[in-house]
Design a protein around this nucleic acid. Structure first.
Length: 160
DNA sequence: GCCAACGTTGGC
DNA sequence: GCCAACGTTGGC
């Protein structure tokens, strides 16, 4: 099984929205990036775990855990002209964009901020903290995953 | 195939 | 709101 980090803007769709869904399940739609599309298609498996990351907000960071509960399947929002992420080049007979279903697992006990993640030498190899990174879905190694869960148990060093 | 223009992401 | 970074588009 694999680990992931998935970004969303809390003002648009945050972890509280996911937690409020029936059974905590929703599809992760609107991905219009080929690298992420390929990750969905080739690597996402039911049972994988993902961090929910809040981006483009006052204190960006990791806020919770989700479980992947489906494989990749066509993102129907690409077919609808009324949708924000409508893509006329995605043909229902040959869909260009895919999505997966995720299920809310839990909130972290505290937000682990991007600043804190960046300051931790153990996470220097994370895509998230590297310069110019723009992927909204990215892999997390098992070591990084476990390290972040350990961080959750500590106080934010900047608050000490 | 090159690359300039443009659009988007997302931290700050 | 600004802007750096980078992906995509499309003319040639």
């Amino acid at each position: 099984m694999a680990y992931w980090l998935m970004k969303s803007e809390p003002d648009v769709y945050g972890i509280d929205h996911l937690a409020a869904e029936p059974d905590g399940v929703e599809h992760w739609d609107g991905i219009r990036n080929y690298q992420v599309r390929n990750l969905f298609r080739d690597q996402f498996q039911p049972g994988d775990l993902a961090f929910f990351y809040h981006s483009n907000t006052k204190v960006p960071g990791i806020v919770g855990v989700m479980e992947v509960v489906s494989g990749a399947y066509p993102d129907h929002t690409a077919f609808d002209p009324d949708e924000k992420y409508y893509d006329p080049k995605s043909d229902p007979d040959n869909p260009r964009w895919l999505m997966v279903d995720v299920r809310y697992v839990r909130h972290l006990d505290r937000l682990i901020s991007l600043a804190e993640l960046k300051a931790d030498p153990a996470l220097a190899d994370m895509r998230l903290v590297q310069r110019g990174n723009r992927l909204s879905v990215m892999p997390v190694t098992e070591a990084q995953w476990q390290h972040i869960l350990e961080m959750e148990k500590q106080d934010d060093p900047s608050n000490r």
